[in-house]
Measured scan of single mutants.
Amino acid sequence: DEVEIEDFQYDEDSETYFYPCPCGDNFSITKEDLENGEDVATCPSCSLIIKVIYD
C-alpha cells in the first residue's frame, strides 16, 4: 500500500513518523530515513510494509 506522509503521526522527540498497521502495531520511518531517500515504512510486529508518499 501507499500512504501520504500527511497521514502519519509525527513524534518530535524521536523524529519518527508512525502510521497504524492492521495488526495493531505501527509502521514507522524516521525523518533521517526520509532525508536519505528511504520511502518504505515497516511494521516491527508483522511482515507488512507500506510505501511513503511525500514531496
Rank of each mutant, 00 (worst) to 15 (best):
Y10A: 03
K51H: 13
T42E: 13
P44H: 09
V52P: 07
S47G: 13
E4A: 07
C23S: 04
E38W: 07
I29P: 05
T16D: 07
T42V: 06
Y10M: 15
F18H: 12
G37M: 08
C23E: 05
P20C: 08
F27W: 10
V3W: 01
D33C: 11
L48K: 13
S47K: 12
Y19F: 12
D11N: 11
E6L: 07
C23F: 01
Q9F: 08
L48H: 08
S45H: 08
Y10Q: 06
E35G: 10
C43A: 00
D13F: 09
E4S: 07
D11G: 09
P20T: 09
D55V: 05
D33G: 11
E32R: 09
D7A: 12
C46I: 00
G24E: 14
D25W: 04
E15Q: 15
E32C: 11
Y19K: 11
S47A: 14
T16I: 06
F8E: 00
D1H: 01
E2S: 15
I53L: 09
K31R: 02
D39P: 13
D39S: 14
A41G: 05
D33T: 11
T42D: 12
E35K: 13
S47I: 03
Q9E: 12
I29T: 05
G24M: 03
I50C: 07
I29H: 09
S45T: 11
V40S: 13
D33F: 13
T16Y: 13
D25T: 09
E2A: 11
I50E: 07
C23Y: 07
D25M: 13
S45C: 07
I50D: 01
E2N: 15
I49V: 09
G37Y: 08
K51V: 05
E35S: 14
S45A: 10
D1E: 15
L34D: 01
T16V: 09
F27P: 03
P22K: 12
F27T: 14
E35V: 06
L34N: 06
Y19A: 03
P22V: 10
V52R: 01
I49K: 06
F8I: 03
E32K: 04
F27S: 14
V52G: 06
D7E: 13
N26I: 05
S47L: 11
N26L: 05
V3E: 01
F18V: 11
V3C: 03
P44N: 06
P22A: 12
N26T: 12
S45Y: 05
A41H: 06
C43F: 00
D7I: 03
L34T: 09
Y19C: 04
K51P: 11
P22C: 07
N26E: 05
I49L: 11
A41M: 09
G37N: 11
V52Q: 01
D7Q: 14
S28T: 13
C46M: 00
Y17C: 05
D33N: 13
Y19I: 04
I5L: 10
E32I: 02
P44R: 13
Y54N: 12
P22N: 09
G24Y: 09
A41Q: 09
E2P: 13
E6K: 04
S28K: 15
N26R: 13
E6W: 01
E6G: 03
L48V: 09
K31C: 02
T42L: 03
F27L: 02
C46L: 00
I5W: 03
E15S: 09
G37K: 14
I53P: 04
D11S: 12
C23R: 12
L34S: 08
P22W: 03
I29E: 03
L34M: 12
K51M: 10
D1V: 15
E32M: 07
C46G: 01
I50P: 01
L34P: 03
T30I: 01
D39F: 04
G37V: 11
E15G: 11
Y17L: 02
E32Q: 12
E4C: 10
I53A: 12
S45W: 02
L48W: 06
G37C: 03
T16G: 14
E35R: 06
K51E: 06
D55I: 01
G24S: 13
Y54Q: 14
G37I: 10
S28E: 14
D55A: 11
L34R: 13
K51A: 04
F8Q: 00
L34A: 13
G24W: 02
V52A: 09
A41W: 01
I49S: 10
T16L: 13
D1T: 05
E4R: 04
L34F: 05
D33P: 05
D1M: 10
D25I: 03
D13S: 07
D1W: 03
I50K: 15
